[in-house]
């Protein structure tokens, strides 16, 4: 009985996860510039993959420990990679969407490139 309840909770969690993975991809597809895409991509896919992993850990008996480890790893590394991509692409000269206001970061990048 307990197995059944945990299992179906897991199925619901995997559904939520898969749905947010889809939303992340849709955000990547629809949003107008790189930084907005990065936002949708990072947040939605992080929750999606974490929820999927924990759900799978609940469905299959004895997998929960490893799947929690995987979930924690993903939670720690996903923001770092998106941060690295955002910073690198701003410095590589990607222009933000024209409605971006204010742009305080531009001053810093400009100052640094002047110093070089």
């Amino acid at each position: 009985m307990v197995d059944l309840i945990l299992g179906w909770t897991g199925v619901v969690l995997v559904f939520i996860g898969v749905f947010f993975l889809f939303l992340g991809a849709l955000g990547i597809f629809r949003l107008p510039d790189l930084f907005n895409r990065l936002q949708a991509g990072t947040k939605a896919t992080t929750l999606g993959v974490v929820s999927t992993t924990i759900g799978v850990g609940l469905i299959a008996k004895g997998w929960l420990v490893f799947s929690l480890a995987l979930a924690i790893f993903l939670l720690m590394t996903n923001p770092i990679s998106s941060h690295a991509l955002g910073r690198a692409s701003y410095r590589a000269g990607v222009k933000p969407y024209k409605g971006t206001n204010p742009d305080l970061y531009a001053e810093k990048v400009k100052k640094e490139s002047d110093q070089k």
Binding site: L23, L26, G27, R30, L31, P32, D33, F35, N36, A40, A44, P96, Y97, G99, T100, N101, P102, D103, L104, Y105, A106
Partner: peptide, 15 residues
């Protein structure tokens, strides 16, 4: 934001 057809975004860089 993503599912809204109009996408009401107002982005900016702050510190």
């Amino acid at each position: 934001l993503v599912l809204n057809p109009k996408m009401p975004i107002k982005p900016g860089f702050v510190k």
